[in-house]
Amino acid sequence: MDKMRIVLTVNGQDHELLAAPNRTLAQTLREDLELTGTKQGCEVGDCGSCTVLMDGEPVNSCLVLAVQASGKAITTIEGVAEGNQLHPVQDAMVEHGAVQCGFCTPGMVLSAVSLLDKVPDPGDGEIRQALSGNLCRCTGYQKIVEAVQDAASKMERS
């Protein structure tokens, strides 16, 4: 099992790494790059808490090999805010009380950010479709959906 040289562009920064083939992207982000905002709730693609954006699209990083992610642009939750300036989705999540235990939150934020990048003015149905791979046990999702709607309208206005 030879390690392989990979290049991950994470939150705009290139990382050259030696990765064992059986390392997942989630493990690499969390353990090698210490980006622990990416959570692992099931490790088999059922819960969405490890969601990151790969070339802009949400994927479960527990089911992507690090070697498969080589050469791709990865956005993790750490790359969403600008310094201490929250992204409108993040700010709306706090404002609407859409965060409880917070374990699903990073993945939820990334799914929402990816949606708003493509669809600036989504309807309720589109938001729910976009978040349907992110399980949350605390909120019943309502405040999350409201937060994404609110973020969308604020981003539209700005």
Partner: peptide, 21 residues
Amino acid sequence: SRARRLDGPEKVTGKAVYLDD
């Protein structure tokens, strides 16, 4: 009132530390 949760900003940015972190 409707207060913003104290833990909100840490949780939405992935800075909140859970056991595995």
